[in-house]
Every structure is written in structure tokens, then in C-alpha cells.
């Protein structure tokens, strides 16, 4: 009897479980079907909405409208041919890596010293030349904030670590003669910090004619400022 009852109970449980499972699956399927219908209809609606929005986007992007809005709200104009320059059209540039490399070597006392990375002489708001001049005029004044600042500090520290050697004096002198040869030297890539370091052993630079230049890039398109 006990065997009979056990099997009966098992079968009843199985049957109950199957019934429950079937019930669950059936309603799950039904729910999923409804969801699918809903999703399909949503997709259809979204597609239509997307289509309408695309048309609206095109309508709002009419060149005539953009031009009107740009001239009303922006300080910019279309790029002109005069604002596009090629690298070859730029004035010759003195190698800016050299002095810093030498400084780095002098500081570490290592001939195979590492060249330090340089701040890229590029600026949107102000050409590099002008910035270098400004920094020279007020050396202790406001420190420029920017990507180059930490680098400059690091470089100054490296330079200050070792005692002043004749090598560095030479570096400064070299640089200075180059600077007088070409009025753009020493300002293009040379940081103002290292310029100041060497400036102590060289005549003041106020005699240099001030130079201005357009920014540097491969082929750089500057943002056009409406005149």
C-alpha cells in the first residue's frame, strides 16, 4: 500500500507541476505576444515619428536659416581663403626641442638624457609669439594656466637641480646668438621659464623686434572672426 500511495503522490505532484507549468507557459506566451504586438506598433510609430523628425531636422537646417541664426548669435563668419595656411607658407622655425634637451641633459648629468616633451606652440585665442612676448614683459606676473604649465615647472626644476655649469652658459649664449640672427628664435617653442634662466647671462631681449605670426598646424584652419 505504501508503495502504491508513494507513486500516486509522486504522479499527482508531477501532474500538478505540469499543469502549473503549462499554465505559466501559456500565460507567459500570451503576455509575450501582447508585448510583441506592442513593441511592433511602437516601432511603427517611432519610425513614422523618426521620419517626421528627419524632415523637420532638414527643414530647420535650411542653409538660409542657419546663416540667419549664425549671423545673429555668433561672432563668427564663414572661413575665408585667407584664413587657410599651409605649413610651407610659414616663416622658418628654429628647432625648439634642442635647448630643452640640453637643459635636461645638464640637469641629470647624463649624456643620454631624455628629451622633455614640449608644449605644442599652438593657440586658438592667441598666437604663440604674442604669448611668449607677454610672458617676457611680466615674468613674475600672472602665470598662464594651461597644459604647458606643469611641463614648464618640471623643466625649470630639472634645470635648477644641478649647479650652473659652463655648458649651460654656452647653451644660453648659443641660443642668444641664434635669437639675434632670427628674431623668431627662442620664442617659438622655447618656454618662458627656460628663457628667463638663460636670460640672466645674456643681454636683455627688449631690442628684439616684436613679431607676430599665424598659428601653426599641418594645414590649419583658424576659426574665422568676423571683421
Amino acid at each position: 500500500m505504501s508503495v502504491v500511495r508513494l507513486s500516486l503522490v509522486i504522479w499527482l505532484i508531477v501532474a500538478g507541476a505540469v499543469a502549473l507549468g503549462l499554465y505559466q507557459v501559456k500565460y507567459e506566451v500570451q503576455r509575450l505576444e501582447e508585448e510583441l504586438q506592442q513593441v511592433r506598433s511602437d516601432i511603427r510609430q517611432d519610425r513614422v515619428a523618426l521620419h517626421v523628425l528627419e524632415a523637420e531636422w532638414a527643414y530647420l537646417n535650411r542653409p538660409e536659416r542657419l546663416q540667419r541664426l549664425a549671423s545673429k548669435h555668433l561672432d563668427m563668419g564663414p572661413t575665408g581663403a585667407r584664413q587657410v595656411a599651409a605649413v610651407t607658407a610659414l616663416p622658418p622655425r628654429i628647432s625648439d626641442a634642442e635647448p630643452a634637451v640640453r637643459l635636461a641633459r645638464a640637469g641629470s648629468g647624463n649624456d643620454a638624457g631624455m628629451p622633455l616633451p614640449q608644449a605644442k606652440p599652438w593657440s586658438l585665442e592667441q598666437p604663440m609669439y604674442a604669448r611668449a612676448e607677454q610672458a617676457q614683459e611680466q615674468p613674475q606676473g600672472r602665470q598662464r594656466q594651461g597644459l604647458g604649465a606643469p611641463l614648464r615647472q618640471a623643466r625649470a626644476q630639472v634645470a635648477a637641480r644641478g649647479p650652473r655649469t659652463s655648458q649651460r652658459e654656452n647653451t644660453g649664449a648659443n641660443e642668444n646668438t641664434r635669437a639675434t640672427k632670427n628674431n623668431t628664435a627662442g620664442q617659438v617653442g622655447q618656454s618662458d621659464e627656460s628663457t628667463r634662466l638663460t636670460a640672466k647671462s645674456s643681454p636683455p631681449r627688449s631690442t628684439q623686434p616684436k613679431s607676430r605670426a599665424i598659428a601653426v598646424g599641418d594645414v590649419l584652419i583658424q576659426v574665422g572672426i568676423r571683421q
Partner: peptide, 8 residues
Amino acid sequence: HVLATTLP
């Protein structure tokens, strides 16, 4: 850019 489209 859409030059012509059909809208509902």
C-alpha cells in the same frame, strides 16, 4: 540631406 520626403 532630405530634399523630398513623404509625410503622414
